[in-house]
Design a binder for these strands. Structure first.
Length: 646
RNA sequence: GCUGCUGUAGCUCAGAGGUAGAGCACUCCCUUGGUAAGGGAGAGGUCGAGAGUUCAAUUCUCUCCAGCAGCACCA
């Protein structure tokens, strides 16, 4: 048998007989490594210790100390162990797929009766039994035909379908955890006992469509989390508890920012404090856009169906539009987007190449009948305010304009403390309008802009809008769910549909290219994310309630009102609290409401015209003069863009 | 929209086939208190909506509505 040469991470090479397993390689190094080894990396592939190595390769042996590989194996084995436990408890259950995900895994089952929360405990107990049995894990390569035959014989249609999806001629890997068999790419640990028995937990059951297709049967998905040790599990559960306290729906109620009602599912009732925050965001954006050369407009909320047919929305999104019933014979729809309105504004009068790029912005409220199951607090609503804009430019200006939007978004996000933004590039979908040639140009423009800005991004094939590809700027909520906020989309199609033109330098009429862009995206969503990001403790300039001035004795009330007026005169939100309560009570209440600054006033303060400042989260207080605190807070209340300007 | 779970006072929750309870919040009274709950009294509910079973339903059954988790969707 021919020898192969394996190169270790330290750069040394040794020769082994071809077909040597990673386990044998580990054993050749030392007994202790043989015992501790859990897997290997062979030429960038995560490698099972049992798999043979046939060619020269770079190899690294992993132990439980290598977090990435250890967690991957633990979670993957837990998925199998859970599936085995479920089948041992309910032999009629069909197993399907069970991948590793962030913090754990899931496995999808086909079973008539729903799994109950109590079942999860039963399954967990069975899993522990399997782990404690230390059953060996074994693997074999089967031919595709053998695998299909096997699953047909055992009446497992889901597995048959999975194997059939694998290209012909390719071998299929099978794994056994004890006697329990599953089709699996691997790698796995060497026996079930290597999985920590006290560091996993089954979290929830939910429906999930087979192969992610809503036209196919719905399976039951059980989610679990798994770690290397009990402490890591505890930390994770603690994190989830903390995240629950940051949930914007909970904070919105606790801080009295907004609420929802059954009469308007998915639409926000903004309370005074929440609306103040909302308006602070709009004022900020208005300044940033004006500085970036945008003009602001306003277009109608309700327009004739004919317009939506022209734009293509009617054909693509009719089911998701709110329709308006009226006495006349016309069909109206509430606008789900601002772009058609902006096309009408652009088309008024003749535009010259000298007018381009023309940047039309609107804080438009759009309405979309979202599926009921999609609604989620402020993060997914049925009516929301976009900081929407459309940039009309020449093809030559396109890349430059994309770059500018990208730069503006990043600068703005950074003002709100979002410095780590994920960017997704979504390309042409199956259902689309326009020529392949215009799609080529559009996708190219976005890619070039990202590359020139040296951004990291992920490509999502086929996920673009029906009229053009898009960039999505994604922010995360408290428990790590992704939400699209900013977006930038290139569109050659709407200008054509609306016969939009400009007069070029040579006098010819040409179609401009159009960029759709939103920076916050949905103001509602951005507000929600912002609340979660800061756990309700918003920076002073954004805080919906900035200052409460609280009296310690009722003799101080008059001075309290004077202080409130001085603060209000500087545009600071200030409230008096002269209730018949002790200062302890007031401090507790306003601290829980996350008011950043409490100014306490007693006899001493009245006498000296001072205030005692208590900042949220700080125990110690500080007594300063009235003028001083007003100046100081006015400075702190200055938005970051205005601060840069001075 | 789909699967599962949930819906009782403003909030958090208890409760049982015989027409409801706690804590906090709210109102009033006493208290003028120095940095995370001072004391007392009071008011507050068509038990998500509708239908059915029953002598009797908020409790059991069904339908609808809304919310939660996930899936699908997200112009």
């Amino acid at each position: 048998m021919a020898d192969i040469s394996l190169t270790f991470p330290d750069g040394n090479s040794r020769s082994f007989p071809a077909g040597v397993t990673a386990a044998e390689v580990a054993a050749s190094i030392s007994n202790s490594l043989a015992k501790k080894a859990i897997s290997a990396t062979v030429n960038d592939t995560h490698w099972d210790l049992q798999w043979p190595i046939e060619e020269d390769a770079a190899i690294a042996i992993h132990t439980m100390k290598d977090d990435e590989q250890a967690l991957e194996l633990i979670r993957h084995d837990l998925a199998h162990i859970m599936a085995r436990a479920v089948q041992e408890l309910w032999p009629e259950v069909q197993v399907t797929i069970g991948p590793v995900i962030q913090n754990g895994w899931y496995y999808d089952f086909d079973r008539k009766e729903p799994f109950t929360p109590e079942d999860l405990g039963v399954i967990e107990a069975k899993m522990k039994e399997i782990i404690n049995a230390r059953d060996p894990v074994r693997t074999e390569l089967w031919s595709r035909d053998d695998a299909i035959l096997h699953y047909k014989k055992s009446h497992e249609p889901y597995k048959v379908e999975l194997v059939e999806a694998i290209p012909e001629g390719e071998d299929i890997r099978m794994y056994w955890h004890g006697d329990w068999q599953d089709l699996c790419r691997g790698p796995h640990l060497q026996n079930t006992g290597q999985v920590p028995a006290d560091a996993f937990k089954l979290m929830s059951v939910a429906g999930a469509y087979w192969r992610g297709d809503s036209d196919r049967p719905m399976l039951q998905r059980i989610y679990g989390v798994g770690f290397k040790n009990r402490n890591d599990l505890k930390d994770h559960l603690l994190f989830l508890e903390e995240a629950e306290k940051r949930d914007h729906r909970r904070l919105g109620r606790e801080m009295n920012l907004f609420h929802f009602e059954e009469v308007a599912p998915g639409s926000v009732f903004w309370h005074p404090s929440g609306w103040r925050l909302f308006q602070t965001l709009i004022s900020y954006m208005r300044r940033r856009q004006e500085a970036a050369g945008y003009v602001e407009v306003n277009s109608p909320d309700i327009m004739d169906k004919a317009l939506w047919e022209l734009s293509g929305h009617w054909q693509n999104y009719r089911e998701n539009m709110f329709l308006a019933e009226t006495q006349d014979d016309r069909d109206y729809a509430l606008k789900p987007m601002n772009c058609p309105g902006h096309m009408m504004i652009y088309n008024q009068g003749i535009k010259s190449y000298r007018d381009l790029p023309l940047k039309i912005a609107e804080f438009g409220k759009v309405h979309r009948y979202e599926p009921s199951g999609a609604l989620h607090g402020l993060l997914r609503v049925r009516s929301f305010t976009q900081d929407d804009a459309h940039i009309y430019c020449t093809p030559e200006q396109l890349t430059e304009e994309c770059l500018k939007v990208n730069e503006l978004i990043l600068s703005i996000y950074s003002d709100f403390g979002f410095d780590d933004v994920h960017v997704k590039l979504s390309t042409r979908p199956e259902n689309r309008i326009g020529s392949d040639e215009s799609w080529d140009r559009s996708e190219e423009a976005l890619r070039t802009a990202l590359d020139q800005a040296e951004m990291n991004y992920t490509i999502f094939e086929g996920e673009g809008a029906f009229y053009g590809p898009k960039l999505e700027y994604v922010l995360r909520d408290a428990i790590g769910r992704d939400w699209q906020c900013g977006t930038l989309q290139v569109d050659y199609n709407l200008p054509e549909r609306f016969q939009t033109t400009y007069v070029a330098a040579n006098g010819e009429k040409k179609a401009p290219v159009m960029l759709h862009r939103a920076l916050f995206g949905s103001l509602e969503r951005f507000t929600g994310i912002l609340i979660e990001q800061h756990a309700g403790r918003l920076p002073f300039w954004l805080a919906p309630r900035q200052v409460v001035v609280a009296s310690i004795v009722s003799d101080a009330d008059d001075f309290v009102y004077e202080v409130v007026e001085s603060l209000k005169a500087k545009g600071i939100s200030a409230e008096a609290d002269t209730r018949n309560e002790k200062i302890n009570y007031k401090v507790r209440e306003h601290s829980l409401a996350k008011v950043p600054v409490i100014l306490a006033i007693g006899g001493r303060e009245v006498e000296n015209r001072t205030v005692t400042v208590r900042r949220l989260g700080e125990k110690q207080t500080q007594t300063v003069g009235l003028d001083e605190i007003v100046t100081q807070l006015a400075e702190e209340a200055t938005p970051p863009d205005l601060r840069r300007a001075t």
